[in-house]
């Protein structure tokens, strides 16, 4: 039987804003982001780290937030889909997904955008093979990946990279 009520205070910076909360020690990071903070753009699709719907960028690395406990994010700097657009301007990738019909139901899209953002930050001109490797941890059931690959490729070829820097900003 799991002991209830073990809690821990954590401080996490998400999309430039710092949050301090007391969480149950066993709470998943994705539930902390979604339920505790109300940032519901990050989704849950599998519980086993297989689908990538919960992908976020944490301390500069692409991670699946269902594979971490909230306390493990103590002190972390996190980016989620809500942080991609700035002042109402979509990021180049967001625009490209929209313009190339890179999404249908939109459920995998936030995780896919985070994976693509991470990919292009580290490899601004990926080949199709590299794009496919970059999103292999993110499952989409609607698109057969064709237009997702197109959307990412268009940004990579378009030299209009505005991938952000992931650094926490003052609030």
């Amino acid at each position: 039987m799991i002991t209830q009520s073990a809690t821990q205070a954590i401080e996490v910076t998400i999309n430039g804003k710092t949050y301090r909360r007391v969480v149950e020690s066993r709470q998943l990071l994705v539930h902390f982001i979604r339920d505790t903070l109300g940032l519901t753009g990050t989704h849950i699709g599998c519980d086993t780290g297989s689908c990538g719907a919960c992908s976020i960028i944490m301390n500069g690395k692409l991670v699946k937030s269902c594979m971490l406990l909230a306390p493990q994010a103590d002190g972390a700097v996190i980016e989620t889909v809500e942080g991609l657009a700035h002042d109402g301007e979509l990021s180049a990738l967001q625009e490209s997904f929209r313009d190339h019909h890179g999404l249908q139901c939109g459920y995998c899209t936030p995780g896919m955008l985070m994976a693509a953002t991470y990919l292009l930050r580290n490899n601004p001109s990926p080949s199709e093979e590299e794009i496919r490797r970059g999103i292999k941890g993110n499952i989409c059931r609607c698109t057969g990946y064709v237009n997702i690959v197109r959307s990412i490729k268009a940004v990579a070829d378009g030299a209009q990279l505005d991938m952000g820097d992931g650094v926490a900003k003052e609030v």
Partner: peptide, 21 residues
């Protein structure tokens, strides 16, 4: 016409309303 979808501005920003939301 293959116009961009009305749905997509909210979905690419994580602003859709899915059931667990």
């Amino acid at each position: 016409q293959g116009i961009p979808r009305k749905e997509d501005d909210r979905l690419v920003q994580g602003e859709g309303s899915f059931i667990d939301d």
